[in-house]
Nucleic acid binder design. Structure first.
Lengths: 343, 343
DNA sequence: AATTGGCACTCACCACGCCCGAGTGCCAAC
DNA sequence: GTTGGCACTCGGGCGTGGTGAGTGCCAATT
């Protein structure tokens, strides 16, 4: 009994099932693949695969369907990422090259990924947590209120209004602000947000004592922005593709749509995934922690300038998915959008 | 032949059909409504209503279904907006009162509206076009680049980076910026964006000639922000409600989902609608200009502080919709969120 | 002129029964 | 370990007939 051939059978089953969306039987397999053995042998192999939990039969006299474990094995050991066609590559680069600003880049990316994979695409906005400070500006708003503007290397701008308790209109306050402005920038520019908050922590002893309270408040705001997940955003596109794949979902696509609206959940999923190194990560069916997505697979990867990923993007689809092509598309889009972001 | 009774029949048909989602026949009508006439009479009335194009029969021996025109008449003349229950009102106010910032308000609003109506909710971010200037700040970024920050009365902050061609590090440039800053604010604060752009147009003769070019550039940026629809955002929630109402869509919910992702289209729909005075506007089925939404109805209204609406929100659902309750919910949510925004 | 009861007719829908064929498991032979 | 053969299973497609809600029309009534 050849282990290799059994895996070849599994591969064939996955490929056929993904293509036809119908349980595949021993005979159909022989017609479409050159396995060099008879149907009976294939049946024996399938029996073993079923025992191992890699495939299952929806009912007695029907073909086999890959289980989550079967897909897992396929993705890990039996598939090679299928390269994109030249036309696809060209489409990617021309579309993304036309983007005007960060919003536009994200918008185009998510649509592109959705149409490329014909599935639901999810793109996270470049995350504050991993980007670094380009500039911090302090703007008196009149009265005692101060606007703090944070500009990151990823082109993102965040702002907060601070109640200082000091009348900022006075000359002394203006001078203090000016020195504070240069001190704060000196201590933060070029550092990651996490580092920058630390950098601010070291400052107070050096600056005008009157400004210490203010500085602490600014540092607090900064770390709040840093920690605050709520400010992170994801964009979703291609939900209508779920309809086409509707039969693949046991109950209905309702729970999936609900899950896709829970951006907090999506962020968490994208976040944990993007820590797993460079490669494309795949979460299959029940491997997925979130209930609404247990009958879906996620194909995700990180992206961003350089090797330090600042955000993640990916695709949500039925477990019955063409993993090789999807993974190729996700990887390619991530690469291109990273290049764009690096300017 | 009584015109009044015929309309009562239409009203009864709409109500029953909305409730049961099944074609309603003459007999069923008699059981559920006190019409005081016989089935045959009702049949005669229905025949007339059908001739007038207000109802239709899906096939020969079946009950009748309201047409778009039937719903239209119902909404315009036969329905009274159903007041919300006390519990609902309380739920609205407590949920919205807990909001922390603008993003949070919008997020909570759209979810609330979706769960209240059990349909797809759409909320537009308070629009720049109608809000006015609270503050404009000019921030040199180092080198020749200048950051322009615009803060509106709706709490929205927009920023642009300007290439000035002037070395802003020089003392002369700093002085110029300082005067420019106060001039610009003097000419714009408190005015609407459209007015503000005009106000800037009147300034150049008064200020330092060296700053004129810069000022023109700022004015240009301001009007660009003003005109630029791309910066307007909508948020959508409750798409999973479409699944429940799936049978109401002739083909599938796919096209609807696609339409809901075209935020530009949604903005246009919300925009035109919010110009129609205070009341709740209803667009029924084919009245809708956008192809993907021709089998849906839109119930929308404007919202925002005071009587000048700064944005719009609404609900998208099947034409077979409980218009009175939906309209009540939309109106109530708009009222509450306006109150919140007014602080 | 409007309303009503009666009546024949139409069709969507459902349940039943039937067959078919793809697919399986098992076994004996190679 | 592989193969051909064989009996068995069972989901799905298909015609068939019955049922009932609903209609349109007509003659009688108010």
């Amino acid at each position: 009994m050849s282990e290799d051939r059994r895996l070849a059978v599994l591969r064939a089953i996955v490929q056929d099932y993904v293509e036809t969306s119908e349980p595949v039987g021993s005979k159909a397999l022989l017609e479409r693949h050159q396995l060099g053995v008879s149907a009976a042998t294939v049946r024996n192999d399938m029996a073993v695969l079923e025992e191992e939990g890699l495939i299952a039969a929806p009912h007695t006299s029907a073909g086999r369907i890959p289980t989550d474990a079967g897909y897992r094995l396929f993705v890990d050991r039996l598939s090679t990422v299928k390269p994109l066609s030249g036309a696809e590559k060209r489409a990617i680069s021309t579309l993304l090259d036309g983007a005007m600003d960060l919003d536009d880049v994200v918008d185009r990316t998510v649509r592109l990924l959705a149409s490329l994979t014909r599935q639901v695409a999810v793109v996270q906005y470049p995350s504050l947590t991993r980007s670094s400070v380009r500039h911090i500006e302090l703007v008196p708003l009149g009265g005692t209120r101060l606007l703090v503007v944070l500009i990151t290397t990823t082109g993102r701008v965040e702002q907060r209004v601070l109640e200082t308790g000091i009348d900022l209109g006075e000359p002394a306050a203006e001078r203090m602000l000016a020195s504070l402005r240069s001190d704060v920038n000196g201590a933060t520019v070029g550092r990651t947000l996490a580092d920058a908050a630390g950098g601010l922590g070291e400052l107070p002893t050096q600056v005008d004592p009157a400004a210490r309270g203010l500085l602490a408040a600014i540092a607090a705001e900064l770390t709040e922005v840093l920690v605050e997940q709520r400010e992170e955003r994801v964009v979703v596109a291609g939900t209508s593709n779920l309809v086409r794949a509707g039969e693949d979902f046991p109950t209905s696509i309702g729970p999936v749509l609900e899950a896709l609206e829970e951006h907090v959940v999506l962020l968490k999923l994208l976040g944990t995934v993007s820590e797993q190194g460079d490669s494309v990560a795949v979460r299959i069916g029940a491997e997925n922690p979130y209930a609404g997505l247990q009958s879906t697979s996620l194909v995700t990867t990180g992206y961003g300038a350089g090797s330090d990923h600042v955000a993640a993007l990916g695709v949500v689809g039925p477990t019955r998915m063409d993993y090789p092509t999807t993974m190729a598309a996700v990887r390619a889009v991530a690469t291109y959008v990273s290049r764009i972001l690096a300017e």
